[in-house]
Design a protein around this nucleic acid. Structure first.
Lengths: 357, 357
DNA sequence: CTGAAAGCGCTTACAG
DNA sequence: CTGAAAGCGCTTACAG
């Protein structure tokens, strides 16, 4: 830190007062009627010695911070990485300083994380993937009328929340399968976990099944225990087990798991989608490039990120009129080959027919 | 930011002077002979009103910053994400505030990135994946006797540099193939790029080939154009093309590409490794779980991250005795099934035999 | 048009 | 043991 040029250095070099130089550097030269000649000289000197305002001092003085901690759970989870990346990019491009934290670094010590975050005055907070309601409480001491946007985080009371509609994820996938005549459908779902976004998936699945006159029981779920970075292999393992029960279609928790499933089925001589269909969710790039191109439900990370940052800026601008707000982003099914449909157009026609019957 | 409790609030509540409270909060109570009773009272009050020292003010006053910008190129590149994650975790756990930047956000406007970084006084800098020598120059104005550790970044003059040995990556992979009798080996290498780490790979490849009495020509390279997130499919495409020339073994630029290759070969009825061998590099989790478990060269992201952070802290502690230092981390071959070896032990025996001949 | 002065929240000698 | 004072680098009325 030592030796960075300061406003005083520029003032001394230019023979002007600090306040004059400050005004020019902030672009307020015209406002203070400082002559263009003087302004140009100041700017030239500042440039020459490499002066940049010290944001720490600026923040301290003005009480306005540009720091935005972005907390999430991204380790080896491509879809959350993608979203986090998009959020950070938007914030950075808009002049914020992004402090990135991963819950994975703290391992059940989220309090340490939050304590560390509290030491720097921030413009606001973005918190993703916080499913445990008890942790929502922890956020309160951090949060004093400064924007705090939760993302994909259960049902936080008294917080703005932007999330991707998991009910729709499951509903769209199941409906798509049912429309194509698949009857015995199973859904791979993490076991022993019970958070809201997951329940939403279950509910969406059940709703679609009911609409097609089917009941849902234990036999429609396959309990899995996903670990970061290993979804693909989990799909392989689960796929081998599932085969015994001969379902007609599988809804995978995510794309990597789906790709693993497809692999497992092929190895056992089953054809996808003729013998068994697979639908993923997330829409990662690899889904376009596996052996059977994956039909999946796009999580629209970029759209979610945009909504998050827009809401964040709205709050920062002082508009709390609709607080607390829920923004629900609807996912979008992407039809490729893994469930035997013929393309979106054809699908819609089939859909129409079905309704008329 | 408004309304955060300050030292003054604690002082007023406790009826003590600000400096006394400050001493206690910094754990310097004993040093100043402040009575335990007083200390306990101060701490209790601070806790009660949720006081935390404002790091911006602390930095400004002491001239010591805990901010560490970590720059890199991680978008949809699992291996750099892994390394970045490890570095950020170590730094955060050691009390630094990590500012994460991705070159991808700036798209040829790295100057904007650096300008933004310069506005906050930092403890030091970690810069990864900066292969263009012209950009090394840009770092100089940022860097005034504050640690700046480059990672996997070409051959920066006058900077500390920690990198994974790409020469070894290619050498180990090629040698492994040659030891198993594979003759016609091709290496998939990005085309139209010419940076040092890539050249190191070429050199390592050539060295191994020479050691086995083989010459290397254009026919030993397959030029590819990798895009983030699409390596898997690139492998599929390239695999289909490569088949025409019937090589016996392929060294893939990375694991995802390797997995794609294996897929492509299988689809054409070639058996891996009986008909054609594939070696990856990076050692991502998925390599353990693809159809043929991938033999690959581990990039040891965690080890690299540890070296980076250790060197960073050494510099921060004022020890510049060995500056500028190069730390070269050697990768490690991970033998699985995709090149037909029988396991590390057997391999080494084969190796010995070969040398004796 | 320009400059002197106060103060953001803290730490650090230094005086009592 | 405790407190008054200066100052980190900046911004912002306000006086000239």
């Amino acid at each position: 830190m030592e030796g960075l040029p300061t406003l005083r250095d520029v003032a001394r070099k230019s023979g002007l007062a600090i306040s004059t130089v400050s005004a020019v550097c902030r672009g307020k030269g015209a406002f203070y009627h400082i002559s263009p000649k003087t302004q140009a000289r100041v700017l030239r000197i500042a440039e020459a010695i490499g002066y940049r305002p010290n944001q720490l001092a600026v923040s301290l003085k003005t009480g306005v911070s540009r720091f935005v901690p972005v907390l999430g759970r991204t380790y080896r989870v491509p879809i959350t990485q993608e979203r986090q990346h998009n959020i950070a990019q938007l914030l950075t491009q808009q002049g914020f300083q992004v402090l990135l934290y991963d819950f994975h670094w703290f391992d059940r010590q989220e309090k340490n994380l939050l304590a560390s975050v509290r030491e720097i005055p921030f413009a606001g907070l973005i918190v993703s993937d916080l499913n445990e309601p008890r942790l929502h409480q922890e956020l309160w001491p951090l949060w004093r009328k400064v924007p705090c946007i939760l993302v994909d985080s259960g049902q936080p009371a008294g917080f703005d929340h932007v999330y991707l509609d998991r009910h729709q994820v499951a509903y769209q996938a199941a409906r798509h399968l049912l429309q194509h005549g698949y009857q015995r459908i199973v859904y791979t779902i993490p076991e022993g976990r019970n958070y809201w976004l997951l329940n939403e998936r279950r509910r969406g699945f059940i709703k679609a099944m009911k609409e097609f006159g089917k009941t849902v029981g234990q036999e429609n779920f396959v309990w899995v225990n996903p670990k970061p970075g290993c979804s693909y292999q989990l799909g392989l393992e689960i796929g081998q087990k599932i085969i015994r029960n001969r379902p007609e279609a599988v809804m995978a928790l995510n794309d990597q798991l789906a790709i693993g499933l497809i692999r497992a089925f092929s190895e056992k001589g089953l054809r996808v989608p003729e013998d068994i269909a697979v639908v993923g969710s997330e829409n990662l790039p690899e889904g376009q490039f596996c052996q059977v191109h994956l039909t999946t439900v796009d999580f629209l990370a970029e759209k979610v990120a945009t909504e998050v940052v827009n809401l964040f800026r709205k709050r920062l601008a002082g508009d709390w009129s609709d607080f607390p707000k829920k923004i629900v982003v609807s996912p979008q099914i992407v039809v490729r080959r893994s469930c035997g449909c013929l393309g979106q157009k054809t699908l819609e026609v089939a859909d129409e027919k079905e309704r008329k019957q």
